[in-house]
């Protein structure tokens, strides 16, 4: 059901989630993924955009891009941005807390038990296997993030931008934030594409 709103960002989207639902999704999907923040963003994207339509494609782009350019942990900035767009300041705070408290608690527990479990072979093997799968998750996430922008007439553009970012980071050694600022600069000048 589309929502009538004078907010251009919320135009045409489904109803906003309650704070409880927002917390529920960020607790369940914002804390569990191995393989770094972007892999978690890919999982969250499926839940809040593809399945529940709490945000649209444009809002995902805004949250993801601005989160990548925010200092600190990008995933938490993304959660905060989604919370802000869907439920304002209370939503931002709830999403930030829900996306950070459970995993922080797990880290405290793991730190407290570190001296014990670092010598447990099966636990180390399980972690090693999970991290191997996380490599696959990371590679798949590249496609998850890029494919919404692959439209008729933009395939070459997407390939060139993503390829250039990869090469600038791997071969030239530019830091991620330098690459992203450069990308923003390129975005100012490249010809625009109709949505």
């Amino acid at each position: 059901m589309a929502v009538e709103t004078d907010d251009p960002v919320r135009e045409g989207l489904v109803a906003r989630p309650s704070l409880f639902r927002l917390a529920d999704i960020f607790v369940r999907y914002g804390n569990i993924t191995l393989g770094g923040g972007s892999a978690t963003v890919a999982v969250l994207r499926r839940e809040i955009l593809d399945r529940r339509k709490w945000i649209g494609e444009d809002e995902f782009t805004v949250c993801f891009a601005t989160a990548r350019l925010t200092p600190g942990t990008n995933l938490l900035a993304f959660c905060t941005g989604v919370g802000w767009i869907t439920r304002g300041l209370p939503g931002a705070v709830v999403a930030l807390l829900a996306g950070s408290i459970p995993c922080a608690a797990m880290v405290v527990l793991a730190t407290a038990l570190f001296s014990i479990w670092q010598h447990v072979g099966w636990a180390q093997a399980a972690i090693h296997g999970a991290v191997a799968a996380a490599v696959a998750v990371t590679v798949k996430t590249c496609w998850t993030i890029a494919h919404p922008y692959v439209r008729p007439g933009t395939r070459l553009r997407v390939a060139v931008i993503a390829g250039a970012a990869f090469l600038l980071n791997v071969l030239i050694g530019l830091s991620p934030v330098e690459v992203l600022l450069l990308a923003a600069g390129v975005g100012i000048f490249i010809p625009t594409v109709r949505a």
């Binding site: 972007s38 782009t61 805004v62 993801f64 891009a65 601005t66 990548r68 350019l69 990371t138 996430t141 590249c142 496609w143 993030i145 890029a146 922008y149 997407v158 931008i161 993503a162 390829g163 250039a164 970012a165 990869f166 980071n169 991620p176 690459v179 992203l180 450069l182 990308a183 923003a184 390129v186 975005g187 490249i190």
Partner: peptide, 12 residues
């Protein structure tokens, strides 16, 4: 914003 997101995919 789209250019930043696409570049993020390359960085990933």
């Amino acid at each position: 914003l789209e250019t930043v997101v696409i570049a993020s995919a390359g960085l990933l």
